[in-house]
């Protein structure tokens, strides 16, 4: 289907001044957010009821986590820059900021892989925990793994959007970049909540 036919099929008013694409993305984000809320409620339930929950410094390095979080939030900022650049019609800057975002997301994933490697080295498994409640390991791998999958999917989507804007003839389509950006900000925001729940308190 070409863009031209989509335009012919579009009609009616747009609530909140948004296109249907943007509305759809927002509602998707809401449902996906509730999915994470489900996991985190389970986590809270388990942690409240546990007598042997390990303290945050038993398995985690707060320094590493702070760097990871910083990198991911920075990638959100570069994504916002990419959206602004595409609105201004600047293809070179758009692609540059998308590259930065890809680098940030990839760096986050690599650091997360390192973190998993180190906690697995310390003996933590989904069903085994040498230092306290076994549910700790189960929720840790579940929630960070699920979030990591979201980051990976986000990277793939950004990569596809990036490649589709490779040559000058292809349309820049700032609306499309904004949708990708919305998803990416959402993934980062979820990480901030996970960071607070698992590593800070």
């Amino acid at each position: 289907m070409t863009t031209q036919t989509i335009d012919r099929w579009r009609n009616g008013s747009s609530p909140w001044g948004h296109t249907w694409q943007k509305n759809m993305m927002w509602w998707f984000i809401v449902t996906d957010g509730i999915l994470f809320a489900g996991f985190l409620c389970g986590y809270a339930y388990a942690r409240q009821g546990s007598e042997a929950w390990p303290a945050t410094d038993v398995f985690f390095s707060v320094i590493l986590l702070t760097v990871m979080t910083f990198v991911l939030i920075t990638s959100s900022a570069t994504m916002a820059c990419a959206v602004a650049a595409s609105r201004a019609g600047d293809r070179l800057a758009t692609r540059k900021f998308m590259r930065y975002t890809l680098a940030g997301g990839l760096g986050f994933l690599l650091m997360q892989a390192y973190e998993w490697w180190s906690v697995i080295g310390a003996g933590l498994r989904p069903g085994v925990n040498p230092n306290g409640d076994t549910l700790f390991g189960a929720y840790f791998f579940l929630v960070t793994g699920f979030h990591g999958t979201h980051v990976l999917l986000g990277l793939i989507v950004i990569l596809v959007a990036y490649l589709r804007r490779r040559n000058e003839a292809a349309p820049l389509n700032p609306d499309g970049i904004e949708l990708v950006g919305l998803y990416w900000h959402f993934v980062d925001l979820v990480w901030v909540v996970i960071f607070g729940c698992f590593y800070l308190i």
């Binding site: 579009r10 009616g12 008013s13 747009s14 609530p15 948004h18 249907w20 509305n23 759809m24 509602w27």
Partner: peptide, 8 residues
């Protein structure tokens, strides 16, 4: 949802 909200 988007059909009802946007395509009326």
């Amino acid at each position: 949802l988007t059909t009802i909200l946007n395509m009326r």
